[in-house]
Simulated scan of single mutants.
Amino acid sequence: MIVHVLSLIVITFVYAMLVLLVIRFSDVEKMEAFKTLLLAFVFGFAAAIVAASIESLIAFLGVAVTSIFMVIIVAPIAEEYAKLYMSTSRYFIEEMDEPEDALIYAACVALGFAFIENVLYIVTFSLELSYVQLVDLTIQRMFLCIPIHIAATSIGITVYIYLREIYDYNHIEALVLAVASAAPLHAAYNLMAITGSLTMASIIVILSIVAITFAWLMLRSMKPTYKLPLPHHKNLY
């Protein structure tokens, strides 16, 4: 069984790396360094730890009275906050010399988050499911959960950059509104997932791809007035 679990983890990793390459090559004008994108991918692991810590703390304090509340409210907010917090760290902000670069780095962070989350699911359910069921779970999470994570965080980072650039919001203000913008899509997918509606979940994924495209176009439209360098803006830490 260990071999089966490891093989699924390897497949998930290979798929994640392919998605990472797609993200990199989507930046057709000026591709980011692969090692920097890989670092953003690893930052996604840290985001997963932050999100898990927040969720555990809320559960410990007894704020989340039901599992539904955790899945629909707490998890989307905690996870999107963690991913966006990592995406807007000074290290990555300094690399965003084009507005659409924000989408590239945020997508890589979200990809890393989704990858490590998928690995945890594979390991956790390896003792409960048959191998065929585990393969099915792995495939579903690869093709459904990863796009959702990327799409939700893409929406959030687009709102963040837009508010920072157009309205001169400070980091905290923009981050709060970015999380508020990203969490609903995440929550909608979680709701469809727990109800077992694969069709609705697939529709949400398709809409998510549309959302990513819209976010990309919106950020590109800001390019003529994009102020550089972003790290030198006031109130940014």
Score class of each variant (00 low, 15 high):
residue 25 F to S: 15
residue 25 F to T: 13
residue 26 S to M: 14
residue 26 S to H: 13
residue 27 D to R: 09
residue 27 D to N: 14
residue 27 D to Y: 09
residue 29 E to Q: 11
residue 30 K to V: 13
residue 32 E to K: 11
residue 34 F to C: 10
residue 40 A to W: 04
residue 40 A to H: 04
residue 40 A to M: 08
residue 40 A to G: 07
residue 41 F to T: 06
residue 42 V to H: 10
residue 46 A to W: 13
residue 48 A to I: 07
residue 49 I to W: 13
residue 50 V to Q: 07
residue 50 V to I: 15
residue 51 A to G: 05
residue 53 S to D: 08
residue 53 S to E: 10
residue 56 S to H: 00
residue 57 L to I: 07
residue 57 L to K: 06
residue 58 I to W: 04
residue 59 A to W: 00
residue 59 A to P: 02
residue 59 A to N: 07
residue 60 F to D: 12
residue 61 L to W: 06
residue 62 G to Y: 05
residue 62 G to A: 08
residue 64 A to I: 00
residue 67 S to L: 11
residue 67 S to E: 11
residue 67 S to P: 06
residue 69 F to K: 05
residue 69 F to P: 01
residue 69 F to W: 07
residue 70 M to Y: 00
residue 71 V to Y: 08
residue 72 I to C: 08
residue 73 I to D: 00
residue 73 I to T: 01
residue 75 A to H: 03
residue 76 P to I: 04
residue 79 E to P: 00
residue 81 Y to E: 03
residue 82 A to C: 06
residue 83 K to P: 04
residue 85 Y to L: 08
residue 86 M to G: 01
residue 86 M to I: 04
residue 86 M to C: 06
residue 86 M to H: 01
residue 88 T to L: 03
residue 90 R to Q: 12
residue 90 R to S: 13
residue 91 Y to I: 14
residue 91 Y to R: 13
residue 92 F to A: 07
residue 92 F to S: 07
residue 93 I to P: 03
residue 93 I to G: 02
residue 93 I to Q: 00
residue 96 M to Y: 03
residue 97 D to F: 04
residue 97 D to S: 12
residue 98 E to S: 10
residue 100 E to H: 01
residue 101 D to C: 14
residue 102 A to M: 02
residue 102 A to L: 04
residue 103 L to V: 03
residue 105 Y to P: 06
residue 106 A to P: 05
residue 109 V to W: 00
residue 109 V to N: 01
residue 110 A to P: 07
residue 110 A to I: 02
residue 111 L to A: 02
residue 112 G to I: 05
residue 113 F to K: 03
residue 116 I to Y: 10
residue 120 L to M: 11
residue 123 V to A: 12
residue 129 L to R: 07
residue 129 L to V: 14
residue 130 S to F: 13
residue 131 Y to I: 15
residue 132 V to C: 12
residue 132 V to W: 15
residue 135 V to A: 15
